[in-house]
Design a protein around this nucleic acid. Structure first.
Length: 825
RNA sequence: GGGCGAGUGGCGGAAUUGGUAUACGCGGUGGACUUAAAAUCCACUGGUCUUAACAACCUUGAGGGUUCGAGUCCCUCCUUGCCCACCA
């Protein structure tokens, strides 16, 4: 018999599956639908990595499993082709981004095919194709027309290396997440999407979907809802009013100063003539700092006094107004009241020796007074003191009462704030969707009419970003100059492009109807396929792509364009596979595992797939162990040998009496295995599903080579079921063996999942553990219908137990049916 | 600093959710086959424990608690991973 050699079989079956289109999903099929979505790849120049392999293999396992379970499965794939890395790669290699994308996708497609994924390739697309981005532009215009896309001149995160503006989510520790360059602040006119309008919806929607808890929590934390009050402080000797946001209005009696962000709009009017120069100097020095510098000086609370005072609305105390750059202009009102029950404020006030002119002076004049009782000043909730008629209340009650008190005086309102900011949607780059807007001197920004979409990205000679922060598109005069769709007079095109998160915000909808040129997707097809049943992807996209696409989808739902309020019914995140040394794979460390290299090496795709499923729970970050492939290869080889051996044996049907005990054992093993593997795949416990199959195979293998005779049809059924259980994990070898075993033309992947025969699950005998004081002493083999008394009596008769019970009194015995008996002495 | 997790053999990891801890795999040791190697197969492989068998005792980061019985539940501490971070 030939040795199992994946090279002989994998490519053969991949070609046949593709030619027969056996993984095609059918629109409006009567079977229940199941949409298995994995994040589509960014086709970089380096080809697929182990991270892709894990994600797509596990997605494929579920897709294949659901297909065999009788679902009309859609398991699609496309390419997230726009974006900075391709542009940088193209510039570096002096080729056009279009060519770079074509080349890279060709490599990706080849590599994805070699994994044996059950993808419906007919629905594939790339986001950089005009027939796709036409609809990205059209969807953007829906936001624009609903007032949710707007332009604003704000300080934005600017990457000086990529020469582009960034969303908050793309800045990690003050650096651009893609290129690791220190991010600067730059004042630019930008397009923004009003994601903040959906902040509450994005939180509430999570309660109706099945996301891994840590994914939901991370989104909730990122959105950062906090309830508090907006309080008005009148400025002394002036008619100015400063609004302040606080979640701790219960500490307002300890307010000793107001602290404003240097960029606060009232700074100029508030600054006293005598303090103008100092304030100006401070603003200049804080603006010259990059974000990372500000973070380095986290503990150093710099600031400057404006020379003005504010009036505390609860007790009319006069408190100084300061500026400090630890107060952020983008959050709340860009102003806070400083008090000692906030750690940062306390440090700030200590440093600058700030004290208020209290009506009741604290014992230590240098320190502001406490308003929450306690041995030391602390930042938590407690009982109020020094707060006039609010004394004695708990913090939470006081918050309500003080707010009510100030609301009645029209000096406060209840307010909810979010950490989430509006999404900066402009990129000053070539390789993205042109924003379909025309700027008319008379009518301002005007939407490009639907019949003029797509606004095609023009071909240019230079892709390099410009020094002045404008897109390279701005250099193409005959493209920029156009006419206003409203009035027909000369106007200019918007030259910024969309971020690469745009195309991926709705791509899953396109799979439902990828060829449609009348609409982004046909409504009937959306009704049939929506929503995605399971979405598998990287944890790093939780606050980026995953949040963005939920926002788009919720908006589309409100517009009546999609049938479901949420895009994804369930979301799971796979863990990272580290290099064999336990650190993140990186070229510089030389610990990168190339999955295609593994496939070519002789182990083949199936060994790799089983290894990925087996190595650890799918959501765990774990180191890659190259030697595990030897184990998974041996496992596949064993089933190869077993099937071939049986097929040979079956020719010469033996007349010898079969061994019924062994036959029963075979049936019991396979039925238990069906139960276990089915349950494990449902729970995504892929590693234990493989372990159970290995364990079962070891026993079957031994049985086969024992001299026990087992009837052909029992072996045949057992092996057929075994192959089916293995099919989602190792599709090629199983397909080959299926043809040999069944002589059938039908692909195993189109057969139905085996069903458990419960009659083989019950056993005649059971193992009862005998414990003394909870400690294991011996086992008893008992018939399953033995009574408690039978077991107890037999246990007490055991020699070993008798020795240990000598001179001891039995206090009681604990009996767990079918499991154990515990004698307490 | 905040949020969410995790600590089990030499290693990746199991444990029916409170019932024989270390399944499965890797690695290691010994053996079979072979002129030899590779491959394959068989046996052993947590510690005390350095000949093996038997027996006993110990063992799930540390310490305490609940329970007939704890890797699993509770408390204290230690270590560590990920995400966020001057968010008022």
């Amino acid at each position: 018999m030939l040795r199992y050699n994946p090279k002989n079989i994998e490519v053969k079956w991949q070609k046949k599956w593709l030619a027969d289109k056996i993984y095609q999903a059918t629109d409006f099929d009567l079977k229940p639908k199941y949409v298995m979505l994995t994040e589509f790849p960014y086709p970089s120049g380096t080809g697929i990595h182990v991270g892709h392999t894990r994600e797509y293999t596990l997605g494929d396992v579920i897709a294949r499993y659901k297909r065999m379970k009788g679902f009309n499965v859609l398991f699609p794939m496309g390419y997230d082709a726009f974006g900075l890395p391709t542009e940088n790669y193209a510039i570096k290699n002096k080729i056009s981004p279009i060519k770079a994308t074509d080349d890279n996708i060709a490599i990706f497609e080849q590599q994805l095919l070699s994994l044996g994924l059950s993808i419906d390739w007919d629905r594939s697309f790339r986001t950089s194709d005009p027939s796709y981005y036409k609809w990205t532009q059209w969807l953007f215009l829906q936001f624009f027309q609903a007032g949710l896309a707007y332009q604003d001149e704000t300080y934005i995160n600017w990457c000086p290396f990529c020469k582009t503006g960034l969303a908050n989510e793309e800045v990690i520790n003050g650096r651009h997440e893609r290129c690791d360059t220190l991010v600067e602040k730059k004042l630019l006119k930008q397009w923004l999407l009003k994601i903040t309008e959906y902040a509450d919806r994005l939180i509430d929607g999570l309660s109706n979907v099945d996301y891994l808890p840590k994914i939901a929590t991370q989104q909730i934390n990122w959105i950062g809802r906090s309830e508090g009050a907006e309080i008005v402080f009148l400025v002394d000797q002036s008619n100015l009013r400063v609004k302040v946001f606080s979640t701790r209005i219960d500490t307002i009696y300890s307010a000793a100063c107001l602290i404003l962000a240097p960029e606060h709009p009232l700074v100029d009017q508030l600054t006293a003539a005598t303090h103008k120069q100092a304030v100006k100097d401070y603003i200049i020095s804080s603006q010259s700092k990059s974000d990372i510098e500000r973070q380095d000086e986290k503990r150093d609370k710099t600031g400057v006094f404006t020379g003005s005072y504010a009036i505390n609305p609860v007790n009319q105390e006069k408190i100084p107004i300061w500026l400090a750059d630890f107060v952020l202009v983008g959050y709340g009102t860009g102003a806070v009241f400083g008090d000692i029950h906030d750690e940062r404020d306390a440090i700030f006030m200590e440093k600058h020796q700030i004290k208020a002119t209290y009506s009741v002076l604290p014992k230590d004049e240098k320190k502001a007074k406490k308003v929450i009782s306690g041995e030391t000043v602390f930042t938590g909730d407690g009982i109020l003191i020094n707060s006039e008629h609010f004394n004695g209340l708990t913090s939470s009650v006081a918050r309500a009462k003080i707010l009510e008190f100030l609301v009645n005086k029209k000096l406060a309102t209840k307010k909810v704030n979010f950490k989430l900011r509006d999404w900066i949607f402009s990129r000053q780059h070539y390789w993205g969707e042109p924003i379909p807007i025309i700027h008319c001197p008379e009518h301002g920004p005007v939407a490009v009419p639907d019949d003029q979409l797509p606004v095609v990205l023009p071909t240019v000679d230079n892709y390099e970003p410009t020094e002045n922060g404008q897109s390279p598109l701005s250099m193409i005069d005959d493209w920029v100059n156009t006419i206003c769709p409203t009035c027909g007079k000369p106007a200019k095109r918007e030259t910024d492009t969309m971020p690469n998160w745009a195309g991926s915000s709705w791509y899953y909808l396109r799979y439902f109807d990828s060829k449609n040129d009348k609409n982004f997707a046909d409504r009937k097809k959306l009704d049939y396929w929506q929503a995605v049943d399971l979405y598998l992807g990287g944890m790093e996209h939780t606050t980026l792509h995953l949040l963005y696409s939920r926002f788009w989808h919720q908006f589309l739902f409100d517009q009546g364009l999609v049938p479901t309020p949420e895009p994804y019914l369930a979301r799971r995140g796979q863990g990272i596979i580290l290099g064999p040394d336990g650190t993140k794979m990186s070229k510089s460390k030389g610990n990168v595992i190339d999955p295609t290299e593994v496939i070519r090496s002789g182990y083949g795709a199936d060994s790799l797939r089983v290894a990925i499923a087996f190595i650890a729970p799918y959501d765990l970050t774990t180191a890659w162990n190259p030697e595990i492939l030897g184990g998974t290869y041996r496992f596949l080889n064993r089933i190869w040998v077993l099937v071939h051996d049986f097929v040979e044996k079956r020719q010469n049907q033996s007349t010898v009496e079969s061994d019924q005990l062994s036959e029963k054992k075979v049936l019991s093993i396979i039925n238990k295995l069906i139960l276990k593997v089915t349950d494990d795949i449902d729970k995504m416990n892929f590693n234990t599903a493989i372990a159970a199959q290995m364990e079962a195979l070891n026993v079957l293998y031994k049985l086969n080579y024992s001299n026990k005779k087992i009837k052909n049809d029992i072996w045949q059924n057992c092996l057929e079921s075994f192959l089916k259980l293995l099919a989602p994990f190792a599709p090629h070898v199983v397909e080959e063996l299926w043809q040999i075993l069944t002589n059938s033309d039908q692909s195993i992947h189109l057969t139905t999942w085996p069903v458990v025969d419960v009659s083989y699950l019950t056993e005649d005998m059971m193992t009862i553990v005998v414990q003394i004081n909870g400690k294991w002493r011996t086992n008893l083999m008992m018939s399953t219908n033995s009574s408690e008394d039978d077991i107890k009596n037999l246990a007490l008769k055991q020699e070993k137990i008798q020795v240990l019970l000598k001179n001891k009194t039995i206090i009681k015995t604990i009996f767990v049916p079918g499991k154990l008996i515990n004698i307490v002495i």
